[in-house]
Deep mutational scan, measured.
Amino acid sequence: MAAGGDHGSPDSYRSPLASRYASPEMCFVFSDRYKFRTWRQLWLWLAEAEQTLGLPITDEQIQEMKSNLENIDFKMAAEEEKRLRHDVMAHVHTFGHCCPKAAGIIHLGATSCYVGDNTDLIILRNALDLLLPKLARVISRLADFAKERASLPTLGFTHFQPAQLTTVGKRCCLWIQDLCMDLQNLKRVRDDLRFRGVKGTTGTQASFLQLFEGDDHKVEQLDKMVTEKAGFKRAFIITGQTYTRKVDIEVLSVLASLGASVHKICTDIRLLANLKEMEEPFEKQQIGSSAMPYKRNPMRSERCCSLARHLMTLVMDPLQTASVQWFERTLDDSANRRICLAEAFLTADTILNTLQNISEGLVVYPKVIERRIRQELPFMATENIIMAMVKAGGSRQDCHEKIRVLSQQAASVVKQEGGDNDLIERIQVDAYFSPIHSQLDHLLDPSSFTGRASQQVQRFLEEEVYPLLKPYESVMKVKAELCL
């Protein structure tokens, strides 16, 4: 049975990233139509530049190519590739079939990587351009969430054990800070992308030097003109047959890092959902379990974690691919890159769409948070109580021993009897502590235990987050809708 299948058929496997999760716009960027249309555009740009620099290419040939950029006979191309065992030459023939007058000058002087690699770089750039505003929107939604809850005390956790208090907004800023680093890295790697350009079979530009009869300047002009037509500021000066596969490492490393950030955020949300302090959106008709109707599973956060793990592992592909590119190139890269580049971007696209949807509907339960604080705060307040007693004339050592005994009794009630923490009640009825009984409410005010959390939130948002989001103001209103 021949390899390949009808990918629109229910009898043929289709990647869930495309069929179930990723956005239509990201799927289109990695589609065959987008790819092969870009090949034709690159052939047109090459012909236009070659004509401008004096090669015998007519206006009629150029116009014929322009008129057929979208006229792609995919069936013919597939048949040609089956016959020739070469995808680029299959599309040269297919393009030439609908451009008979231009057929002889299509791909003039070029090698397969002229269309293959340059198209990949265009796709990487455009895919990054799709991700950047999506990530900015996630940051914006979380920034709104953090600002609104900047002063809401909550129990902090280290080692997932109760620690000092923080605020809900401050905790959210930990998430935002990681995503801001990801946004900066995505922008950097996007701006650092260079075009492969017009380089020939081993990167020496020998074929173009021959076409222009040894004119170095025209060869350099050709490279520059096509690079500018493709919208790049610069091209690699040095290439082998391909652009260095280190570029793929750079791009997928940034995406993998984004995956790590999203995994951490969504894990926190899942843990908070278990504590009943916070939940992701839950639709009115949504079913959490087929057997347990009360369940409210954090399905979206779980999906993000599941896909983020996949995204983090994909960076190993370009690392290994770059390491086995012998001399000017081997074909070890080809099949692998067809999979890992598309999957990385479709996965990143999915987790950003999902995280935006989550961040637009996060639900906080202040009463649950308050109750958990009441359970733990008495123990945390013991040092403040000791200091207040010393100020009232008591002995630190005597007070410490009193607190120690009462704390152990209260802990026994919590752990052995399943009761509430009654340390404060014990202190309130103990005559030894009568000098500070009137101060206990103040000493137990949760806001006095959150330090500068709310001020940190305000400063972080104003100095770091809002300036970073400013270039994306025009796209901030787009909502994230999930079908599944």
Rank of each mutant, 00 (worst) to 15 (best):
Q397I: 06
L186N: 06
L352D: 08
N384C: 13
I386M: 00
A47D: 02
E401L: 08
G394E: 13
R404S: 08
G231Y: 07
N274T: 11
F345W: 03
T167V: 04
C266A: 11
G109E: 01
H7D: 09
V168L: 08
S301V: 13
L482C: 08
M387C: 10
D192P: 00
Q325C: 15
A260C: 06
L314P: 05
K147R: 12
R37P: 01
E425G: 10
N336L: 11
D191W: 08
H437M: 06
K233R: 13
L53S: 07
E473A: 09
P153A: 08
D191C: 09
L124F: 14
E79G: 10
K35N: 10
N297Y: 01
F36T: 15
R296W: 05
G203Y: 05
R234V: 09
D87P: 01
W45T: 05
F74A: 11
E401A: 14
S447F: 09
P366E: 14
Y365R: 13
A18L: 14
A103H: 11
L423C: 02
H107M: 01
D445R: 14
V478T: 13
L444K: 07
T154C: 08
F379L: 06
R85T: 02
Y114L: 04
D422S: 06
L128W: 00
A22W: 08
W45G: 10
R337Q: 05
F449M: 07
H7T: 14
P318Q: 02
G96L: 09
T242S: 07
M76S: 10
V368D: 01
A77G: 14
I72N: 08
F30V: 11
N353T: 05
I373M: 08
N118A: 05
M76A: 10
T119A: 13
A344D: 03
R452F: 09
V363E: 04
K233N: 09
L252Q: 04
R396E: 01
T94F: 07
L174I: 13
L352S: 08
Y243K: 06
N384L: 10
L142E: 05
E148T: 09
E81M: 01
G393T: 05
R309P: 00
L44E: 04
G203F: 01
L44R: 04
K35Q: 14
L84H: 06
A136S: 14
F212N: 04
T52C: 12
L331K: 01
F345L: 12
V429W: 12
E250G: 13
E50C: 07
C113Y: 00
L314F: 13
D144V: 15
V168P: 04
V254Q: 13
R234G: 11
R303Q: 06
Q408R: 12
L179Y: 05
L275W: 13
C305T: 08
L183G: 03
I237K: 10
Q241I: 01
